[in-house]
Every structure is written in structure tokens, then in C-alpha cells.
């Protein structure tokens, strides 16, 4: 029983990690007033870049950061379209979601002899696991805490973003740009600059989210590795009312219900397997309806501002 609880909690942390990065990225972009549904594409390019760089340099940390930068580059494209060219945020986001996998597959073929997947990283060339070997294998604490470094970094970043949002001048200005850009401009805040920064950082976070999949949860990139996580992260962010800490709980809850689903899949007869697999989504809906009645987006979300 204790082992099962450990397993469910471990699965929760594993599942939540890529969502945490990406949802935080979404929160940063959207608090500045730019809708970012291109997270999926940014994750894909990040996952690919991280796996490729880690493989060629045999260093996961450089790969991880590089994955972030690749996402940031797509973030820049999104910012150019949405902020400078005042494109519809959703349309640009959809384009990003085509562009990310397109570039990733194209480059994969270029670097890996025509295949659409990258080469496998050795276990010791993946992200390190700080608690690996500290506890007995598959014991309660091992199952919970023997996670990749990316998980601990993700949790840490939640509090960093929370601090920046609510306790720094930059955060206050960022949120003011997302709420009332005209008012912000009147008092001399450079709205365009803030939005550019936020969207690029958002791409960076989504890139890290993709990296946390391709060089920690698994150890290479292939075509459907990123298959909807970007959208789940977006849902988690809305669920978390566009705020970092509630967003973290949303991601953890989604991971937790996946853990429950896998656990129940073992103990419940196979006939109900589809029902069990619905749990994460059904639970999300229920909690959304019951507890998140008043979820308010930043007022200027998706709107444009004159320079």
C-alpha cells in the first residue's frame, strides 16, 4: 500500500514536470496580454534541440538550456507577429504549432541521417537524478524522490516566477501591461518591450518543458513525443487563474490523477480501462466547475496597443 502511494506520487511529479515549465511560460506571456497557444510548437522545438545538443555535446545541462533558447526563438517569432505586426494571437500561435514540429523534423533528418528521431542518450548522460541510489530501489521514498533534476528546478521556478510577479517592479509593470496597456503607456512603461520580453521568456520556459521530456523522462526525441502536453499546460494555467502557485497545483493535480489512473489500471479489471484513463480529464473538469468559479483572464489579453 505504501509502495502504491509512493508510486502514485512519483508519477505525479514525473507527469507534472513538463507541464509546470510550459504552464509557467504560458502565464508569463498571458499576463503581459499576449495569448500563447503556440506552447506546443515551442515545446517540440525545445525537446528536439535539447536531445540533439545533449547527444552531440554529451552534456544534458547545455542541452537543457539550449532547448530553452530554441523555444525562445519561436517565442520571438510569435512576439514579432503578435506585438509588432499586431497579428491575431491565436492565428500566430497555430502557425507556431505547425512551425515547431516542421523545423524539428527537418533538422532531425539533417542531423541524424534522414531519420526523424534523435539518437538515444546514455543513462549517465541524461539529466542527473540527485536522489538516485540514496534510498533502496523502488522503496517508498525512492519512488517519490528519485526524480530528475528538471523536476526540482521546475518547482523552484514556480516560486521564482511568483516572486517576480508579485514582489518586484518588473512584475507589477508586466501585469499592468496585461491589464491596462493604455494606462501603463501613459505612465511611461514601454508596453512593446515588456510584451516582447514576456513572450520570449514564455518560449524559453516552454522549450525547457519540452527538454524535460526529451532528456529526462525519456532520452531521445521522436515525432509524436510532444502530443498535446502544450495544450494541457495551457489548460492548467487557466485552471490556475493565470497565477504561478495555483497553476503549479493544477499541474500537480493533473499528474496525480494520471498516477491514480495508472494505479487503478492495475487493480481494476481490464474491461474498465477506458473509464480509468478518463480520470485525469474528468477530474480536471469537475474541479474546474466546482472550485474555479471565478477565473479571470488579464483584461487586455489578446488585444492590441498603439505605439
Amino acid at each position: 500500500m505504501l509502495i502504491d502511494i509512493g508510486f502514485i506520487l512519483g508519477t505525479m511529479f514525473m507527469y507534472a514536470t513538463p507541464l509546470l515549465y510550459t504552464a509557467l511560460g504560458g502565464a508569463i506571456s498571458e499576463n503581459s496580454g499576449v495569448v500563447n497557444i503556440g506552447l506546443e510548437g515551442m515545446m517540440t522545438i525545445g525537446a528536439f534541440s535539447a536531445a540533439t545538443t545533449s547527444y552531440f555535446l554529451q552534456n544534458p545541462w547545455i542541452g537543457f538550456i539550449f532547448g530553452g533558447f530554441a523555444g525562445a526563438l519561436l517565442g520571438l517569432v510569435h512576439a514579432v507577429a503578435c506585438v509588432s505586426y499586431r497579428a491575431d494571437n491565436v492565428v500566430s500561435g497555430i502557425a507556431i504549432n505547425f512551425l515547431g514540429p516542421g523545423i524539428a523534423l527537418f533538422l532531425a533528418r539533417h542531423f541524424f541521417g534522414g531519420t526523424t528521431h534523435t539518437k538515444i542518450l546514455d543513462l549517465d548522460k541524461k539529466m542527473p537524478r540527485p536522489f538516485d541510489g540514496v534510498f533502496e530501489q523502488n522503496s517508498f521514498f525512492d519512488l517519490i524522490l528519485n526524480q530528475y533534476a528538471t523536476m526540482f528546478i521546475a518547482l523552484f521556478l514556480v516560486f521564482v516566477v511568483h516572486f517576480v510577479f508579485y514582489y518586484t517592479r518588473v512584475g507589477l509593470r508586466l501585469r499592468s501591461v496585461g491589464e491596462k496597456p493604455t494606462a501603463a503607456r501613459t505612465v511611461g512603461i514601454r508596453v512593446v518591450l515588456y510584451r516582447y520580453g514576456a513572450v520570449i521568456v514564455s518560449g524559453f520556459f516552454a522549450g525547457l518543458g519540452g527538454s524535460s521530456l526529451s532528456i529526462a523522462i525519456v532520452s531521445h526525441f521522436w515525432h509524436p513525443l510532444i502530443s498535446g502536453q502544450g495544450f494541457i499546460a495551457l489548460a492548467a494555467m487557466i485552471f490556475g487563474k493565470w497565477k504561478p502557485i495555483p497553476t503549479m497545483f493544477a499541474c500537480l493535480m493533473f499528474g496525480f490523477s494520471q498516477g491514480i489512473a495508472v494505479f487503478l489500471g492495475r487493480v481494476i479489471p481490464a474491461t474498465y480501462t477506458e473509464l480509468v484513463s478518463m480520470i485525469p480529464y474528468a477530474l480536471t473538469l469537475i474541479v474546474l466547475v466546482l472550485f474555479v468559479r471565478r477565473s479571470r483572464a488579464p483584461s487586455a489579453l489578446g488585444g492590441q496597443v498603439d505605439e
Partner: peptide
């Protein structure tokens, strides 16, 4: 056990880990 997916690698990892445990 079934994953009810052909793409969710994290779920595959989780199910297999449980089996090994």
C-alpha cells in the same frame, strides 16, 4: 495493462515502472 494511447510515452514509462515494482 493498456495505456489507452499510442503516443503518451510518460504513461508507458509509468505503467512499466509499476510492473517492475
Amino acid at each position: 495493462q493498456y495505456a489507452d494511447s499510442f503516443v503518451d510515452a510518460a504513461k508507458g514509462k509509468s505503467i512499466a515502472t509499476q510492473m517492475y515494482v
